[in-house]
Amino acid sequence: MLYEIGAPPAERSSPIVVVESLVKRFGSFAALNDINLTVAKGEKIVLCGPSGSGKSTLIRCINHIEKHDGGRIVIDGIELTDRMADINSVRCEVGMVFQSFNLFPHLSVVENCMLAPMKVRGLSRPEAHDRAIGLLRKVRIHDQANKYPAHLSGGQQQRVAIARALCMQPKIMLFDEPTSALDPEMVKEVLETMVELAREGMTMVCVTHEMGFAREVADRVVFMDRGSIVEEGDPDTFFSAPRTERAKSFLSQIVH
């Protein structure tokens, strides 16, 4: 490893995400079963596991796109309850990047990035514009600022989606398989953007099966299966010497 990732250890110790005994059901089916997870400030977590194991559900609960049925979720000191004020203040701190980008097709790239800062953070149009251009520059797509999403490649769209989330100046970024809808040649540009973000000290929870990315930036790999966290550890140990049978069989599948 050539560089130290993230914030200094002192700051790291304070948790920014605390998930306790989390339960999420769809009807009678328990998609999440007693999940406990603590994320420190600046920490980067990679979530992996077989399809249907509840990875998406977990990170969707963290910004309350899914409402949890039991347990507690505390984000930066605010507990997620049914109160809309709490939900909104948590969502302001949590940026999310989706597998399918979910850009607003009727707005240009820069307008996509300006909307929420203006409506939610109360920025003026010029302020929002400056911030948007700044972050689009950071994801190296500012020269496309006035195009519409449909005119960009998948990789470019996903970088816009990252910039759009960053425009809200979140403290945590959630990624749900950000590269799995992309053509192979575009995966790299998105991963590079994410690595850069990680180096700047952003707290990140990423659902991804990109092992290279996990090895490079993750502080911890969390392996889920059937709605539970089965194993967690640092990436090198997890990938080279998984302890549980389920992790072993999962890894043997994604390597091939």
Binding site: I65, N88, A116
Partner: peptide
């Protein structure tokens, strides 16, 4: 969902 995530 994108709108929710952006707190709109």
């Amino acid at each position: 969902e994108a709108c929710q995530a952006l707190s709109l």
